[in-house]
């Protein structure tokens, strides 16, 4: 760790001079000093963006190691903070279907959860037609200790066991309770409609 301290010392002699300058000017004029000369946008270890990037990298590694078969797409290969996860449940109402979820990991991650939207229209009590996802760990129950693996498991759970008691799409929830057969038919109908649009759907 001292290596870093020494290295920083060697690098920041210019900064030290500047700080003295800042101190004397603010004493005279009592105005806010000028921002430091760090280049905006490039993550340095002093920025939150850096920590967010490291955590994202750790999480992606964990995801790759624990779920090697999971399909992950990166639309922009110069930015690992945006990606698409494709989930296909092996049983339940949505058996055999594929759902794409777009993740945007913010620079405040892991303090803020990633933004997640479903890219495919689906008849589901906890997903609405615009792709909004009602999953507690994406909102009020999010904790920084959760990782991308927790979120992928949460989304899969949502597809396996839709929860009609905590509905975002109230009509779908009601149908699931009142008439499960109609619900299943509606799911399949929507999938057929979706196949038609699927080819033209662009990533976000």
């Amino acid at each position: 760790m001292l290596r870093l301290a020494e290295w920083k010392d060697a690098q920041t002699t210019d900064d030290a001079d500047k700080s003295d300058e800042v101190r004397s000017t603010s004493q005279l004029a009592s105005t806010p000093p000028q921002p430091s000369s760090q280049v905006a946008g490039v993550p340095t270890p002093a920025s939150l963006r850096w920590l967010s990037q490291q955590r994202l990298q750790q999480d992606l590694t964990e995801l790759g190691v624990t779920a090697p078969e999971l399909e992950l797409q990166f639309p922009d290969l110069s930015d690992i903070s945006r990606f698409i996860v494709t989930l296909s449940p092996a049983e339940g109402w949505y058996k055999g279907l594929c759902f794409r979820f777009a993740f945007t990991v913010l620079e405040t991650y892991p303090f803020e959860p990633p933004l997640v939207r479903c890219l495919d229209a689906v008849w589901h009590p906890n997903l609405d037609e615009h792709g909004a996802v009602c999953l507690s760990i994406l909102r009020e129950d999010w904790r920084p200790v959760y990782t991308l693996v927790s979120l992928v498991q949460g989304l899969l759970h949502l597809l396996l066991e839709p929860n009609p008691n905590d509905a975002l799409n109230a009509a779908a929830a009601e149908m699931l309770v009142q008439d499960p057969a109609a619900f299943q038919a509606r799911v399949h109908q929507q999938v057929r409609e979706r196949q038609y649009h699927f080819e033209n759907a662009a990533p976000p």
Partner: peptide, 18 residues
């Protein structure tokens, strides 16, 4: 795995990034 400014230099996992 190596990342530079959100840009993957080399990542052995996940498969798509590899």
């Amino acid at each position: 795995t190596i990342v530079w400014d959100y840009r993957p230099v080399y990542m052995s996992v996940p498969q798509s990034l590899k």
